[in-house]
Amino acid sequence: MSTQVASHPARRLGGLTLDPLVWMLTLLALVIGVSTFFLIVVYVLWQAAGVFGAVSLSEFLLFEPWVPLAEPPRLGILHAWVSTVYVTGIALLVAVPLGIVMALFIAEIAPTAVRNVLQPCLEVLAGIPSVVYGFFGYVTLVVWFEHIFDMTTGVSILAAGLIVAVMVMPFIVSTATEALDAVPRSFRETGMSLGVTRFYVIRRIILPRALPGIFAGIVLAFARGIGETLAALMLAGNSLAVPKELLDRGQTLTGLIATELGEAALGTEKFAALFAASAVLMLLILLINGGILLIKNRLLRHAQG
């Protein structure tokens, strides 16, 4: 009986295929690839843990200044995350309203031809490398600031914030456009057939429907903003003081890491502190992204339902 089954033609053909091999190799690639994620997370957290022999969490986040060369080293990152919040806050303040109106334009008003030009343009804007943005800000905004505000150097939280705004805006536009496009077209036609203006339909029906999706996009843009490195590094001014005003210089978390990492030796407290700063950044970004990914389907259903 069993020999009969084993010699059945279907059986033999199966034995000849590459399937088991391909199956195994592709699975292996997937497992290795995805495990780099866990490797990074665990490794960063493990290296970061070393800092808490030197300072407590509250000192690290809130009280100590950053003087790694002091004896013993003083390792606080208050100035860095305050700068990060400032820069990202300015960026969102500019990019969110502009981005939402732009998305409304693309989804609700623009003729197809205009839309087909505008969207690739924004894609290019999103693709410009961070370091090029930093350079562009340096030769435009920073120079203008020196003239307008009579500053000795124009690098500032504001300059960094404005450039990061340009960087996250295309992202806000694309997620908001996606959310608006998910609202069924029939709402627009039926709404307009009641003799109201397009704006009224948008305000009463379409925006409320798309709002959760737009909100998710803004939160994700925040996560991108705080992870932005080169532009913030080149434009914020690399100052260790806690910034108080828009035109003060500052140093974002990413700027701190990028500035100091090259000079930190493995195993030192400074090295651990830089990893702790990275861990703070990483956990925040993963929490935001993970959270949004988990509820994303529900958000899209809200728009369509």
Binding site: L30, I40, Q47, S130, G227, T229, I257, S278, M282, L293
Partner: peptide
């Protein structure tokens, strides 16, 4: 689940890859 972790990996900012690559 795999897509979820992949997208999480994609969300990690470039500087953290640099930090990890440097140390590791």
């Amino acid at each position: 689940v795999m897509r979820f972790f992949t997208e999480c990996l994609a969300a990690i900012p470039a500087i953290l890859f640099g930090v990890f690559g440097y140390a590791f």
